[in-house]
Design a protein around this nucleic acid. Structure first.
Lengths: 204, 204
DNA sequence: CGCTATATTGAGCACTTGGTCAACAGCTCT
DNA sequence: AGAGCTGTTGACCAAGTGCTCAATATAGCG
């Protein structure tokens, strides 16, 4: 009683879309082949036809999520401000974007902790986080060069690591306790901590 | 064929210890009642006798882990240094303590993400994190009072949230990629970022 | 000693999961 | 029209899970 046939690539996409829906709803633990099949309105066996195993499905989903997740700081609209302010601005933009993407962030964290035990997942996550860090290097590099005497022993890489680590910490908080996470207070505090001069800015 | 009898409290402790061993080895996903029973050299049914359900076991384990995890900053040996340096010192101590407790940190993060979906776990984790944050408030409070003009709009609570959030972000990194996580570089960068004066310190 | 309350066991149940597979339908091509 | 490849199905299997329960050994008490 097989149903309608559909070109392979298209079905794969449908299944991945269904998997994404299931995973953002029920998290990785709820991502069973049967749940995905049901979500896609398709038989269980078909999932294995297209992805060979559950692991294949999970990895394909991870790839898709990483592909469609923008993990590079937005440097647009930074105009003539100082490099440090530009860096701060990028961090703030990333943090501000977290709450509205809570589902996706939660899923990414699921993958992250899965990577702790699963080598393939770990590799991919590490690469994504590495890319994210690298994307910050131009910003941190410029910031350091603008006031080199202020950052003894600080490399663009280490500063990028701290910056992205900070964002990742915020991501954890957003997922865990979104109501408590007070974005404006966080950003105000961050600015005050980092800026030397008396801050003559208005919150964006 | 029942085996030797043991007072109830003692058995509970034995089972919890076994559960902790299993959970640090195989993580929460590997924490099955059978695995715990086997680890404790005991029958599967006994786990249910003492904990009623797997959920009971997990919650009891969480309570024990939280009880025996020191989540308050160590303010000893801070002598005559400035409040800001004391705060920095506390953060650094917490971060330095992460790598050697990787197993435990990984387990706590497992509980953390479990809390995303499980209300009882969430409550406990939120309380623990809240306590952790509060424990920082005296330090952040003193730091702000020492240079109030430098921290416009920053409350002791918001600064504590940022500080602990920073540590939590580091915890994620340590669990994920312990080799890449460069503690000294992180701390150097943090100091340079936060300190106004030229840093005349030696790394502890 | 015997009795009773209490740990303790292990077989077993119900259910879910990943995965396999023979059957079968639809499409294309000759 | 018939052959053949390719999607598709759903029944099925084996393994693992949480959990129950009758049976039973043990410790403590009279």
């Amino acid at each position: 009683m097989p149903g309608p046939r559909i070109p392979e690539d298209q079905r794969r996409d449908e299944l991945l879309a269904a998997a994404y829906r299931v995973a953002t709803r029920d998290r990785l633990g709820g991502l069973t082949t049967r749940a995905v099949a049901k979500e896609a309105g398709v038989s269980n066996g078909l999932v294995f036809f297209h992805f060979t195993s559950r692991e294949g499905l999970v990895l394909a989903l991870l790839d898709r999520v990483l592909e469609t997740t923008v993990l590079s700081p937005d440097t647009a609209g930074s105009d003539a401000r100082s490099p440090v302010l530009q860096l701060l601005h990028a961090i703030e933009q990333d943090i501000e974007g977290l709450p509205e993407n809570r589902d996706r962030v939660a899923l990414l964290i699921d993958f992250w902790v899965m990577g702790t035990q699963h080598a393939d997942v770990r590799t991919r996550i590490q690469k994504a986080l590495g890319d994210y860090r690298e994307a910050y290097v131009p910003l941190t590099s410029a910031a350091i060069e603008s006031e080199p005497e202020r950052y003894p022993g600080v490399t663009p890489e280490s500063l990028a690591a701290v910056a992205t680590g900070f964002v990742e910490g915020c991501a954890l908080q957003v997922v865990m306790d979104p109501d408590r996470f007070d974005v404006p207070a966080y950003l105000t505090t961050l600015r005050a901590l980092v800026l030397r001069e008396a801050p003559g800015y208005a919150l964006a």
